[in-house]
């Protein structure tokens, strides 16, 4: 397998993340093309890359953050979070959240619902959710990819999943009613 081929095996993974980040096929195409353009350029210098997939995702995320993000000047949603305040904040959320989610059956969710719920998430949250749930990167790898402390990554994953769960619960309940 040539060096280029070993990079191109990750094209589907990169493309699906790109599509969920930029939300349209044309831009996803561009984002992935640019990621590979940069990656190939770097490889011309025949550097040894340890974890190719993680490296490609880092390039993708950097390109996205620098060029495709709607408003680069917007301060990151969870930048001020530390692990401490993160744990404080979630204990409140836990007691406040109801058990209504148990009424919902998530298996009945439509792909369109999941897609919408994901796309509605703020960019910072969407990024870490894609990297953790879908691509299975470790928190440490994610923190390196998006240049954030690991505590911020944890906080974003926690909050992102909370929001996602609430949305999906709503959709699932709706699906349930419609079925009845």
């Amino acid at each position: 397998m040539s060096q280029k081929d070993s990079l191109l095996v990750h094209i589907d993974a990169l493309y699906r993340s790109a599509l969920y980040l930029v939300k349209n096929e044309h831009n996803a195409d561009d984002l992935v093309q640019e990621t590979y353009f940069k990656a190939f350029k770097f490889l011309e210098n025949s550097k040894e890359i340890g974890n190719v997939k993680a490296w490609l995702f880092k390039i993708l995320m950097n390109t996205f953050i620098n060029q495709y993000r709607k408003d680069k000047r917007e301060p990151s949603l969870a930048d001020f979070d530390t692990i401490e305040s993160f744990h404080e904040s979630i204990s409140e959320e836990i007691s406040a959240s109801s058990i209504t989610e148990n009424e919902a059956e998530f298996k009945e969710l439509l792909d369109a619902d999941v897609k919408k719920a994901l796309e509605d998430l703020p960019e910072d949250f969407r990024m870490v959710i894609l990297l953790s749930i879908v691509e299975g990167f470790s928190y440490k790898e994610i923190s390196e990819m998006i240049n954030c402390p690991i505590g911020t990554v944890m906080s974003r994953i926690y909050r992102g999943r909370k929001i996602l769960k609430e949305k999906l619960t709503r959709y699932a309940k709706k699906q349930g009613y419609e079925r009845e």
């Binding site: 094209i11 589907d12 990169l14 493309y15 699906r16 993340s17 599509l19 969920y20 992935v32 998530f106 298996k107 969710l109 792909d111 999941v114 897609k115 994901l118 959710i129 894609l130 749930i133 879908v134 999943r161 996602l164 769960k165 999906l168």
Partner: peptide, 14 residues
């Protein structure tokens, strides 16, 4: 939920 999200996103191919 985790499984469902992963499945949905992974249906996308380049």
């Amino acid at each position: 939920i985790q499984k469902r999200v992963k499945e949905t996103v992974c249906k996308v191919t380049a």
